[in-house]
Design a protein around this nucleic acid. Structure first.
Lengths: 143, 143
DNA sequence: TTTACTGCAAACGGTTTGCAAAAGG
DNA sequence: CCTTTTGCAAACCGTTTGCAGTAAA
């Protein structure tokens, strides 16, 4: 049983070519992808045509089972998806080319506890995204 | 000349009742508001009816002049607006009641410089939002 | 009187949904 | 078989836009 198959069956989801292909695409992606990008990849490189709504439904369900994670990063109202490896992470987003770097470290330390002490909130998590220009775009800009 | 009037005229924008009222609403708000909320407030409490598109256009223009700031916090594809006081800030969002607390301190210290050293990115800014449950909702949940 | 602003209604783009047909177990 | 999943088209929802009319300077 392949890893993608395990993930799906283990969550009680049916194992279909579409879902398999979606997971493979996410596995090979080096950054979070939009539903649209996955949809195009399915048709173009995987040759497993699936309707856009299927892609959305599959992603939603897999997000519900923590197989994938949905993030909103770009602020343009477009969601991105990546494989969930259940690690705490942040993103460094290039404002020029849209490239996304995943940051595995977290600079927040015990800030959440500090905030709880100050505000009385019970903190369950945070999102930190950093914006800037990647080395390649910086080089291009200099010329 | 009122403060709102100054802000508008100083940016080369015309001073209209709609914009005046929008700014007053934002001044009295204790948290960021959506275009929809502002729209309703205009009709209901200010009695200055303005179409939703006028609200959006006014906010967009004022955002362009740094009179207001547009933030996306909730992840549901709904933008929020607040008066821009050009201060660096973060938000603490209650997942239960939607209440938003503005945090004026920033725990990031010189993290941006660290990141630049590690990645080669030129960092221009970051967004940090913290999610949890406010004291009131925690109390209710206990019962 | 010139230019910016407004209202309306229609368009837009990403996402969701209802329904009947197809496929998984 | 029974249940889930799929495709299609239409609905949705926040936001944007074209245009003709109105108000600010």
């Amino acid at each position: 049983m392949s890893k993608t198959e395990e993930r799906l069956r283990g969550s009680g989801l049916k194992f279909t070519k579409q879902r398999q292909a979606i997971l493979e695409i996410l596995e090979n992606a080096e950054q979070p992808l939009s539903a649209e990008q996955i949809y195009r990849d399915l048709a173009e490189t995987k040759e497993v045509p699936a309707s856009l709504s299927t892609v959305y439904r599959a992603l939603d369900q897999m997000a519900g089972k923590n197989i994938v994670t949905k993030i909103s990063l770009t602020g343009d109202g477009k969601a991105l998806f990546e494989l969930d490896c259940s690690l705490h992470r942040h993103y460094l987003y290039c404002l020029e080319c849209g490239r996304i770097l995943t940051i595995r470290s977290c600079p927040l330390g015990n800030y959440e506890e500090t905030l709880t002490a100050e505000t009385g909130f019970e903190i369950v998590g945070h999102k930190l995204n950093v914006y800037g220009y990647c080395p390649e775009c910086r080089k291009k800009a200099q010329k």
